[in-house]
């Protein structure tokens, strides 16, 4: 039941990873055909399968994401089958796939970046300290939140609020789930912020780091390969658009 980092990827500089993340997400806006977008989404999915964070809640999330994605594919085929083609349906399917692309690539970033290197990377980008503080807590906090959600969901099941109760009383069950999640999230973030403050985080002196960050060949190769992948998909997208439409 751990959602901690499954791989501490130190080869790629966190700044290069951040740039790659932004580039990867931005490129998805240049892709318009849903099948190509789905193929593009398969890249973060393959990475996530490789990283595979364990945990039952993660499995539940995977099942939920799979169902949602299947519904999105059905929506796409339904919209295409309409005469004339249902453009709003296709646009919705496209938007949903893009959300999955952002979530998947963001998740990869969080699972493969250590907090110290992330903070150092942000500092090298000369971001303001309060923003670094918030982002650093967020990256540390996200795996914890998933763990908390799993525990709360298990306890709710223990109180007899299972799948059927969720279906029969979604508002009541949802409220019972959200309450402790929000409260735990606030408490955990507060404690983490307090602990960081007590250890000098936010001191008005330049922060040092044992690990050194330098943009090197693997980082350039990483960004160039992402760009090449993007261009291939862009070409495929144009081709698919001309041949089959949206």
């Amino acid at each position: 039941m751990q959602f901690e980092q499954t791989a501490n990827c130190t080869i790629i500089d966190p700044r290069a990873k951040m740039a790659g993340l932004i580039l990867f997400c931005l490129l998805s806006f240049f892709l318009h055909t849903v099948p190509v977008l789905l193929a593009y989404l398969s890249i973060p999915i393959i990475f996530l399968i490789f990283l595979k964070p364990s945990g039952r809640f993660f499995t539940k999330m995977e099942i939920g994401a799979g169902l949602f994605l299947s519904a999105c594919i059905l929506l796409y085929f339904w919209a295409r089958a309409q005469c004339p083609i249902h453009l709003d349906g296709i646009a919705s399917a496209r938007a949903i796939v893009r959300v999955f692309i952002f979530t998947g690539s963001g998740l990869i970033f969080m699972l493969t970046t250590s907090s110290s290197r992330f903070i150092l990377g942000l500092e090298k980008l000369h971001l303001p300290p309060p923003l670094i503080f918030v982002l650093a807590i967020a990256i540390r906090f996200f795996p914890h939140l998933l763990q908390e959600m799993e525990l709360i969901s298990n306890n709710l099941q223990g109180r007899g609020i299972g799948f059927y109760q969720w279906l029969r009383h979604p508002v009541y069950s949802g409220r019972a789930f959200i309450f402790p999640v929000v409260i735990r999230a606030i408490k955990k973030a507060d404690t983490l912020a307090m602990a960081a403050t007590m250890r000098g985080f936010g001191a008005p002196i330049p922060r040092t780091c044992r690990q050194k960050l330098t943009i090197s060949t693997p980082d350039y190769l990483f960004l160039i390969s992402l760009l090449i992948i993007g261009l291939i998909f862009f070409y495929c997208d144009r081709y698919a658009y001309l041949k089959w439409g949206m």
Binding site: E4, Q5, N8, S114, S115, T191, L192, A195, A196
Partner: peptide
Amino acid sequence: EDQFFTMQ
């Protein structure tokens, strides 16, 4: 565990 800021 609540006060750990890093992973290692």
